[in-house]
Design a protein around this nucleic acid. Structure first.
Length: 344
DNA sequence: CCCGGATGGCAAC
DNA sequence: TTGCCCTCCGGGC
């Protein structure tokens, strides 16, 4: 269910509440018992999102051993550059219904910078108003992974992927991913731990990957190797805002259109991270889109849910730009929404 | 109280 | 293209 913005929020949350701490890792459900044993008792050094992939980094802190070098502070390549085998990475993909829940004492909850968790992909519990934090509750349901620190806990259920990666795996994962709008540029302290300072030319990279393919651009936006983190809602809304027909082949999207799509994705998804929900009807004062005169010139936080999208799940309702009923069809196994009247 | 859909992705036909 | 994964929750009975 979550698109890239949710994964970036989770990476930030996990870093906020666990980074630098030794954690107990278990699999109450049992399905991840072997993997949990590889991580149990290690120090969680940070979490990062690459598109919809969530990577949680651990280092083995048993180290009575003479000071092994710290991770290079200046090394922005990310900690997986470490070759000594003590660094381990947990890869999680939430798929359609994976979700984290968190709970802990006041310091644990206070460490979170994402504000109140949202229902999609993140929930909060164990916030006993007047009570004292007495440790994690008995696991309810199928908890694939449980992380427990001194101050709180996190439970993961229903992920489509959950595995411990080798350094080679991590390198391959990074190489396969397209540019991620939420790792691009400098979101002023808004980026997660391993966030590399993205090349200024992410827009160009996206444009190249989009425009060299003959496949429908509505399908390419969902291709994580073309652009990482876009899901079904952002795909439909980005193309509507740009006035682009989802069936137009990637190679027939102009360079300017591609660059504008990228800029709009960066804008919308940063709001998604900030708010914990997808809003796409707000105006970007710094960037003109085809739908500019229909956008709301207010903070996206103030836009109610029912006014938060232009076409997604609005089949049959009149297009806000031209009045044509919004159409829907299945494209590559997913429901696509668009206006056949004004998207060309 | 059951059914089915959901902001994914994959392997197998 | 289809089925499957395997979880939650809302809508319709």
């Amino acid at each position: 269910m979550p698109e890239g913005h949710s994964i970036h929020r989770l990476a930030r949350q996990l870093t906020d509440v666990f980074a630098g701490q030794r954690v107990r890792v278990s699999s109450p459900q049992g399905r991840f018992a072997a993997g949990a044993a590889l991580l149990d008792g290690h120090v969680l050094t940070g979490a990062e999102a690459i598109g919809k992939q969530l990577l949680i980094h651990f280092k083995n802190h048993d180290g009575e051993g003479p000071g092994r070098g710290e991770y290079g502070d200046g090394d922005r390549q990310g900690p997986d550059g470490d070759e000594n085998g003590e660094h381990r990475v947990l890869r999680i993909h939430l798929g359609l219904y994976g979700a984290f829940s968190f709970g802990g004492d006041a310091s644990f909850r206070g460490a979170s910078s994402i504000g109140a968790p949202r229902r999609i992909g993140e929930t909060e519990s164990g916030a006993q108003p007047g009570g004292e934090y007495l440790g994690p509750p008995a696991p309810v349901g199928a908890v694939r992974v449980r992380l427990v620190s001194e101050h709180g806990w996190a439970d993961l259920r229903g992920p489509s992927a959950c595995e411990v990666l080798t350094s080679d795996d991590v390198r391959a994962l990074r190489a396969a991913a397209g540019p991620d709008p939420l790792r691009s540029g400098a979101p002023a302290a808004a980026d997660d731990a391993g966030g590399a300072p993205a090349a200024a030319d992410d827009a160009g990279e996206f444009s190249g990957r989009l425009r060299r393919r003959h496949v429908a651009c509505g399908q390419l936006l969902m291709d994580q190797g073309v652009i990482a983190g876009i899901g079904n809602v952002y795909r439909a809304e980005l193309l509507f805002r740009a006035g682009i027909d989802p069936y137009r082949p990637g190679k027939r999207v102009t360079e300017q259109e591609a660059v504008d799509l990228w800029a709009d994705a960066v804008f919308l998804m940063r709001d998604g991270v900030r708010l914990g929900r997808i809003v796409t009807t707000q105006r970007d004062p710094a960037h003109a889109v085809a739908v500019q005169d229909l956008t709301l010139d207010v903070d996206a936080a103030d836009i109610p849910e029912e006014h938060g999208r232009f076409v997604y799940k609005r089949t049959g309702q009149p297009c806000p730009r031209c009045g044509t009923p919004v159409a829907s069809a299945v494209m590559a196994g997913r429901n696509l929404y668009w206006c056949p009247g004004c998207q060309h």
